[in-house]
Simulated scan of single mutants.
Amino acid sequence: MDHPIGRPLAELDTPALCIDLDTFEANIAAMAGYIADCGKQWRPHAKCHKSPAIAHRLLEAGAIGVTVAKVSEAEVFMKAGVRDVLIANMIAGETKVNRVAALCRYGDPIVAVDHFAQAEALAAACRRLGVSCRVLVEINIGMDRVGIRPGPDAIELAHGVDRLEGVRLVGVMGYEGHLLRVEDPEEKRRKIDSAIGLLEEARDRMQREGICADIVSAGGTGSYQFTSHCPAVTELQAGGGMFADPFYIEQCGVQGLSPSLTVLATVVSRPMLERGIMDSGRKTLNGELHMPVVKSTVVGRSLPDATVTALSAEHGFLKLGPESQDLTIGDKIAVIPGYSDFTTVLHDRFYGIRGGQVEVVWPLEARGCLQ
C-alpha cells in the first residue's frame, strides 16, 4: 500500500508491524513519570525501536537522550538530531574509534569501556580530530558479559582513563540483566540493590579520589521499577517498556504497562478444525524468549483460546480452541510479539494505529546497523 495513512487497519497487507498509539503513549508517560518521580533521568535504549521518529517522541516525554549498542546506530540517531547518545558497548578497531571520534563533531556521545586499550585508542582518535569524547567505565555487576571486575580493578581503570587526553571520564555503568526474571519481588529488590551497590562503591571511591563520577547508568525494562529506587543511579536505560512485551510482563513482573505492539497476520490455511496457519513465521516474529501471543481478530474480537505453537520460516502454527475455530482463510489477526527486540529488527516500518486507522508510518532507520 503506497499511501496507507488514513486507511483502516483491516486494509493493511500482512505481515505488518503495528503500534497501538494510545497504549504506546500511555506506556511512555507511565515510564517517564515513574523514573522522574524517583528523581532519575531517562536514557531509553533504542534497540527495541530503531526509529529516530520514536526517539524524538521519547525526548518530548522527558528523555535526555538514547542508548544504543552500535556505532552505526549512533550515527543514525545523531544524523536525525539526537545529540546525546550512549553507546553501551565496547568499541574496538581503528575504523570504529575513528567513527566515534567523528561523531563528537556533531553531538556529545558517550562510550562504555572496560579496558584501558579501548579508552587509549579512542583518546588517540579524538586527539587527531581535536575533539573530546565522554566515557563511562562499565563494571561487571553480576551478568558476566562485559565489564571490568568491581573493586580495585575498576578504580585502577578509572584512574588510567582519567589521565588520558581526548576522552572525559564522566562516570560508571552496569547492567543487572541477570536479575530480570527473579520471581519473588523482595528477593529481586535485594539482589538488585546488592548489584547496584557495586556501582555505588565505585562511584564513591572515584569521587573521594577526585575522579568525575557524575553519571551512574543502569536499569533495563525488566528491572527499572526496582533500579529506579537505588540512590546511586542517576539514569535508567529501560526502553522496551513502551511496547510492554509479554516477556517483560509475564517473566519479569513489570507492572502498570500494557502491550502496544502487534503483528497483523493473515490466516492462510485451515488444515484441521483445531489448527490454523498464518503468514507470519520466523522472518516476521521471534519466539526465543517468549512465544508470540494471539490477541484478537483485526476487528477486535478476542481469541482467548488461540495460541501460537510453532514458527517456521514463513508460517506460524495456530492451535485453535472452540472460541477460535470459526477463523477462516483470509481472516486477519493481531499477534503480540513475545519479545519485541527480536521482532522489530525483521521489519522496515511501524504502522501507528489510532481509532482503527493508520495515523503514521515510522521507518526503522537503524535496522540492520550492525557495525
Rank of each mutant, 00 (worst) to 15 (best):
M1T: 14
D2G: 13
I5N: 11
P8F: 10
L12A: 11
A16P: 03
C18D: 05
T23A: 09
F24D: 03
F24K: 00
E25I: 03
I28W: 04
I28Q: 05
M31G: 02
G33Q: 06
Q41N: 14
R43C: 13
R43M: 11
K50E: 09
S51Y: 00
L59S: 02
L59K: 01
I64H: 05
V68E: 07
V68T: 15
E73T: 08
M78I: 05
G81Y: 12
M90F: 06
V97D: 03
R99L: 06
Y106K: 14
V111P: 00
V111C: 11
C126N: 07
S132P: 00
I139V: 15
M143G: 01
D144Y: 14
D144I: 08
R145N: 12
R149E: 15
P150S: 05
I155Q: 14
G160D: 08
L164F: 10
G166L: 03
V172H: 09
M173I: 11
G174Y: 04
G174R: 00
Y175V: 00
R181I: 07
V182C: 05
P185R: 15
P185M: 07
P185V: 11
I196N: 01
L198K: 09
L198Q: 11
L199E: 02
R205G: 01
R205T: 09
C212K: 06
T221A: 10
G222M: 02
S223T: 14
S223L: 04
Y224D: 03
F226Y: 13
S228D: 07
V233G: 00
V233Y: 01
T234D: 04
A238S: 12
P246G: 02
I249S: 06
Q251R: 12
Q255K: 14
Q255I: 12
Q255A: 14
L261W: 03
V263Q: 09
M272F: 13
M272T: 11
T284Q: 04
N286E: 11
P292Y: 02
T297I: 06
V299S: 14
R301D: 11
T309Q: 11
F317R: 07
K319Y: 12
I329M: 13
D331K: 07
V335L: 06
I336A: 00
D341S: 15
T343N: 08
T343L: 05
L346M: 13
D348F: 08
R349S: 09
G352M: 05
E359W: 10
V360E: 14
G368L: 08
L370P: 04
